[in-house]
Design a protein around this nucleic acid. Structure first.
Lengths: 145, 145
DNA sequence: AAAATATAATTTGTATACAAACTATATTTA
DNA sequence: TAAATATAGTTTGTATACAAATTATATTTT
């Protein structure tokens, strides 16, 4: 008797773990982790973005984002600038080397992903995404019970 | 222009994060995390199991499993017994309180999961699972390139 | 205007994941 | 049989996620 948890949940958790590990592995030569990459990408999409906004767009909580930005800043890919409109806030800016890295990695990651989904029919991908959205909605509803 | 990464990867990562968070939140009254629960469940399915086997069945690396078992053992749910056939190895055993907790939580978690997938047609769930399997296979193939 | 409340970012603490290193032990090779 | 190699589990170190607490600042309420 296989539980719903095993059928639905564990499969997803396993896949996302493997995905993260694979991306991180391929990013290793660039000395950046998959999570840092996501953040860098989001900064490149919206330069001079507040950390609050960035944490939403990258789906990371403020505490975690602070640590990731620390590392990206240490490596010279981003910088924090005081927000002139709000002294509690910083604006995160991408550096030239950050831009270069993003330009280099974007096609690389996209190609990797195209391989990850190769041989999967588009209709199936559409269903998969629809199911994930429904799961997320249901999770959202269950959060307040 | 939405990237494949955003369409395929980020959606999955988001969902699995929310899933883990939801399960952990609902398990909080029981003073056990979602990851510890998975391990407890696996021990209950195969009492006297080696850590090596357990790490495979729970999809956790040895180092992480050691820490989780430390916590479960501290809370009295499992115990380590030397393996008579191999002095490098322990057999993980479930305690009576571990069994009780598993019996209590199993239906609770199943019910939660049934809510998480409520309103999703079975055919869609089947496609979703098929896609996840394909993704995992593709990831496996890409691991060695 | 002052007080109360909310908020941005950071810090602290716990848990988890992963990689590398380690030690005792088992297995394989020569 | 001895040496070489592999392995079970643990430890150490880095990164990430999350919750709670904190401080300076902004916003809302009185």
């Amino acid at each position: 008797m296989v539980s719903i948890e095993d059928l639905v949940g564990i499969t997803m958790l396993k896949s996302s773990k493997r995905l993260t590990r694979l991306i991180t592995m391929h990013l290793k030569p660039y000395n950046i982790t998959s999570e840092q990459w996501i953040v860098l990408k989001r900064v490149s999409e919206a330069d001079h973005i507040s950390q609050k906004e960035l944490s939403q767009r990258s789906d990371k909580d403020q505490a975690t984002l602070t640590k990731i930005l620390d590392l990206l800043e240490k490596n010279g890919y981003v910088s924090r600038k005081p927000n002139p409109d709000d002294r509690r806030s910083f604006l995160i800016c991408i550096s030239d080397s950050g831009k270069s890295l993003k330009e280099e990695l974007f096609p690389f990651i996209e190609h990797l992903y195209s391989q990850i989904i190769s041989d999967i029919p588009e209709e199936q991908m559409a269903v998969y995404q629809e199911v994930l959205q429904k799961i997320q909605c249901n999770i959202e509803d269950l959060k307040y019970k």
